[in-house]
Design a protein around this nucleic acid. Sequence first.
DNA 1: AAGATACGCTACGGTATCGTATCGTTAATT
DNA 2: AATTAACGATACGATACCGTAGCGTATCTT
Lengths: 198, 198
Amino acid sequence: MVTTSNKSERVPSANLNRRVERSRHAVLTTAFELLSEGGVASFSVDEVARRSGVAKTTIYRHWPTREALVIDACSRMIAEQETPDTGSLEGDVTAILVEIAHLLPTANWSFVLPSIIDTAERNPEFAEIHSRIQRGHAAPLREVLQRAIGRGELSAYTDVSTIVAALLGPLFYRRWFSREPIDEQFVKAIIKRVLASL
Amino acid sequence: MVTTSNKSERVPSANLNRRVERSRHAVLTTAFELLSEGGVASFSVDEVARRSGVAKTTIYRHWPTREALVIDACSRMIAEQETPDTGSLEGDVTAILVEIAHLLPTANWSFVLPSIIDTAERNPEFAEIHSRIQRGHAAPLREVLQRAIGRGELSAYTDVSTIVAALLGPLFYRRWFSREPIDEQFVKAIIKRVLASL
DNA sequence: AAGATACGCTACGGTATCGTATCGTTAATT
DNA sequence: AATTAACGATACGATACCGTAGCGTATCTT
């Protein structure tokens, strides 16, 4: 940036940022919470102002428009998951899917995701966000599959995308479509079927 | 409330119904169209009135509230699919999945479904509708699997629900989550994997 | 201590929507 | 032909939301 030297290009100081950050953080937290409850559709800046205690005028000083705030709040959902390394493909895949199965009924993002998908269906900005969230979910799985290919545990010609769909699809299906419980037995059954076919 | 005399029970005549049906039909058609475009969230009675040419007052004579109309329009999406009968399980499953794969990128309901799922996440009435739509999609698959069990082609202890999730999940995953194309090669790969494990 | 910066509060104007009321008109019933 | 039922047009009150303006206050910077 700029040196504080001769006259100045006014670098924002730490204290100043602390103040700005306080309201920014309060707003984003509330926004995310509101999003979890009602989805993108029922999200309103007025409500965020009411709940967070931050004045609406202040909110509009940080975000130019409602949509910008929603998008910013959505980005909070891009939660990278850690990639396990058990040594075997089956171990890795099991670890990942059990974790996801555990998160699906409870995690906040699982309530918001349909709303984002819906919005993404008609709004490119949300399509981009959805794409990032999606990649985040699939990333660990892709990695352990690639590693298995590296070890020679899988053929180098394996179609990773298909396997990912075959593994994640059934879980997501149960969470949002058939709304059946996702118990460990189910997860194991899916894994067994998919891996047996490789 | 007056009896029309001793004899008749004032059955609404055909002509009267014709008139009522005309507006009912116009409204429902427009409502469904509007739903396909913008989802449940952006659905408005005023817009239906504008597009359909039916006066808003008339709409409210038939549906007590906006939500009632939306729900009624959503019900139009419960499109039963026909169940094939090729003689073999693989033939039947292939026929069903290819058909779905063909519909997923184009059919109107595929644009609205995320919106319904989102709404269903917090609204019991929509949860019920979603459940019916869902059962409609899975029904043919369940049936051909049951038939296969009947023929002895599958073990009587096969968990049908798991197989359905394993087959439909990957397709839905690609349509709404990873947004990858669903070509015939992919469908065949999924079917092969799942059926090989039985 | 003095000036700059971010904030809170209240109040707008504008728009969209819901659901209702009123009243005149058209179509169907008898 | 007379009556009844459904419809259309307009207007309305109520509410919620967006985004902005004005102005005073608290906090930070120097």
